[in-house]
Amino acid sequence: MAAIYSLYIINKSGGLIFYKDYGSAGRMDTNDSLRLASLWHSMHAISQQLSPVSGCAGIELLQADTFDLHCFQSLTGNSSPLSTMPWIIRTKFFVVCEPGTVHMEALLKHIYELYTDYVLKNPFYEMEMPIRCELFDINLAQAVQKDRVALLAR
C-alpha cells in the first residue's frame, strides 16, 4: 500500500515540469497529468482571490474521500506577465496521498531542498523547463522510500 500516490512540480507559468507516480492508485497518463497540473495552477490562483481574508497564499491542503492533496509553494516568484493577475506566481510542489497521511509538509519541504540541490544547481538545467535530472530522481526515490518506511514503522 502506498501512502503517496503521486508527486507534481508546476513551474511559474502553470506548466508541469515534473510528475512521478507511486503505486497503482490514481495512475494517470501524460495528458491527464498535464491537465491536472494546469487545473490546479488555476484553481490555486482562484482560491487566493476567493479567500475572504486578504493575504491568502492559496490552498495548502485539499481533502477528499479518496485522497489528500498537499501543496507547497516556493518563496521565490515572478510577477505574472498577465495584467489580469497582478500578483506573484510561484513554483508549486504537490503530493496526492492517501487520506490522513501525515508529515507531508515535511516531505514537501525536503523535496524542495532536493530540488534546489539537484535541479537548480545543475548548470545544464534550464529554469522553468521539465526536470530531467538523474540525481534528483535518485535522491527523491530515497526520500520517498524513507518516508514510506517511517510510515510502516508507525
Binding site: S74, L75, T76, K109, Y112, E113, Y115, T116, D117, L120, K121, M127
Partner: peptide, 16 residues
C-alpha cells in the same frame, strides 16, 4: 543569484 536564492530559502528556513 536567481537559482541560489531558492537554496538559501530552503535551507535557512527564513520566512518572509
Amino acid at each position: 543569484g536567481v537559482r541560489l536564492v531558492d537554496e538559501f530559502l530552503a535551507k535557512s528556513n527564513v520566512s518572509r
